[in-house]
Design a protein around this nucleic acid. Structure first.
Lengths: 192, 192
DNA sequence: AAAAAAAGAATGAACATTCATTTTTATTTA
DNA sequence: TAAATAAAAATGAATGTTCATTCTTTTTTT
């Protein structure tokens, strides 16, 4: 395949530039020419790696999303109590939001706007399966509230995105202590 | 002022069209010509009412946001118990998300992207002052957890936005019953 | 009849994408 | 091994389109 001959470094540089520029200006306000310049590449070169602008952003999304899930479940062990398991996952997500703030912000933008096309977004959703399985077990064991996974997610995981955004906008500082508070709150919200 | 001579209907139509088109295509993918067409107006006419595209979207944002706050606190009475007060506000927000879904979605997009360059976008949750005051009282009375307002907001109010988004993307149906679940979850999360 | 509001067409800039060349890399031949 | 050639990758400069904004004219209101 031709693809594999081409420099993986260049592809990465393009993806990195895309993230940074989309984060700062939004997708439609980010010209290909700027992405190229930031990646030290000619505009034409982008089209050797990606079909077009939409493909570039879709692939960037999928790549970031897969980094995200890999990170989140890296330390997960499904043979633990529901509480331990949840805490493991939750804290990894919190870490990701804190340490990989650029990725996190990019994902947030993609999830909350019309940047990404449907198929890519759909593909992104499946990634949290282990957490859903854990919740299922928790519901069966009478630990987790027997309510929609969407509500569980909205109340326990999504707040981290919001706090990350608030932090990014300098409205709020997400310190260690705040993370503790947020965890206890998340746990309280989803348990019986 | 000339402004007041011009038709308020046209201005409203422009704002309405802006919301609808930005919701469906995003700001930068929405041409002025389409906004004009949807509002049954010539493109040039937009510039009689707004300075330019940025001004149009900024003003739309301010207008929607002020509708939101007016709606949310319309029924609020600060001389009630913390629980009653919170429930009043929370349910109004839920209603707004359900019945004024277009407004709600638009606000969400503005709050989570770089569309708006209005200082007021950076004000965070300050526009919800009565709610913050209520929480203060709740903290003093030992009802509400003594933690950052941002965390309280993230866990009890923000989930509604998330659920509205999920609904908008047809992943989820926010029924009456789900609203009940969500309310109990929200209340559990912020109380001691 | 004058002033204000609205319109459609024109302008010029920005931008995604493609084209024609050049540069780099890999392969073959002597 | 080194020169010669072929293939791949990369480029800068076009291309053609889209679009925000403005200009000139027409319509409506006062």
């Amino acid at each position: 395949m031709a693809k594999l001959q081409k420099s993986i470094d260049k592809r990465n540089a393009l993806i990195k530039s895309t993230i940074e520029l989309v984060n700062n200006n939004g997708f439609h306000a980010t010209p290909m020419s700027k992405i190229a310049k930031m990646a030290n590449v000619s505009p034409a070169t982008i089209y050797l790696y990606f079909e077009n602008k939409q493909d570039l952003v879709n692939q960037t999304y999928l790549e970031v999303k897969s980094n995200y899930t890999a990170f989140v479940f890296e330390t997960y062990d499904k043979d633990t109590s529901v509480k331990t398991g949840f805490e493991l996952i939750w804290r990894r997500i919190a870490d990701f939001n804190r340490t990989e703030c650029e990725y996190s912000f990019f994902l947030h933008q993609c999830n909350n706007t019309q940047i990404i096309d449907e198929p890519s977004r759909k593909e992104g959703i499946r990634h949290l399966q282990p957490l859903l399985d854990l919740w299922k077990r928790g519901k069966q064991g009478g630990v987790i509230k027997p309510i929609s996974d969407y509500i569980l997610y909205a109340c326990s995981i999504n707040p981290l995105s919001f706090l990350m955004m608030a932090q990014k906008q300098d409205q709020f500082q997400l310190t260690e202590e705040q993370v503790e508070d947020a965890f206890l709150t998340a746990w309280d919200s989803i348990t019986l």
